[in-house]
Amino acid sequence: MTEKYDFLFKFLVIGSAGSGKSCLLHQFIEKKFKGDSSHTIGVEFGSKIATIGGKSVKLQIWDTAGQERFRSVTRSYYRGAAGALLVYDIANRESYNSLSEWLADARSLASPNIVILLAGNKKDLEAERQVTFLEASQFAQENELMYLETSAKSGENVEEAFLKCCKTILGKIQNGELDPDRIGSGIQFGDSKTRLLNQEKPKKPDCFCNM
C-alpha cells in the first residue's frame, strides 16, 4: 500500500467519443487491448508509476467520456491537470475536426501551462485513414503540441506518448518553468526528500539547456 514515488502528476485523456481514449489508458496500464470496451460513463480513473530519467513518477490519469452529454461533468476534472493526451481517430475526420474545441477547453479550464500531446490513435487502421500524418503534425506545430500516432490495439507508441509527456513536465520542473508548489499545478511531491533535492537546485527560469 505504501508506494514510493518522487512526483505525482495529474493527467487527462480527452477527445471525441470513440477515438479510443479508454483503450489507450487500458493498454498503457495493463499492456492489453480491450476489444469489447463500452462507452465511458462520466470519468474513469487509472494510475501507474513510471520511471523517467531516474525519477519515479506516479501518473494519476483521468480518462474522460467523450460524449457530449457528459461534458459538464467531465469539465470539472480539467482543473489542476499537469498534462493531457488529446486523442483523435485517424480514421474519423470528425474527431480530428473537433480538436480545436477540445484544445480550447483544456487550455482555459486546466492550467495554461498544461503539457499536451496530440495522439492520432488507431494507427493500425491504415486502410481507412482519413487524416494524414502531415496534416495533423502541422496542426500540432501551430498549437505547440507534441505529436505521435498511436495504436491502442497493437500498443505502438502508447507508452511513449505518456512518457514523452511526463518527460516534458519533468524537464519544465527542473528548469523552473513549472512550480510544483503552485496550487493547481497538478504536480505533487511523493515524499519530502525530493522536495529538498529540488530546492537545493538553483532555479534557472530562463535557461532551457536542461531539457
Binding site: 460513463i41 462520466g42 470519468v43 474513469e44 480513473f45 459538464s72 461533468v73 470539472s76 476534472y77 482543473r79
Partner: peptide, 17 residues
C-alpha cells in the same frame, strides 16, 4: 458543488459502470 463533487461523480459513474 460541481468542482468539489468530482470524486462523487466518479464514484457514481463507477456504480453505473
Amino acid at each position: 458543488d460541481l468542482e468539489q463533487d468530482q470524486y462523487t461523480h466518479m464514484v457514481v459513474a463507477s456504480f453505473l459502470r
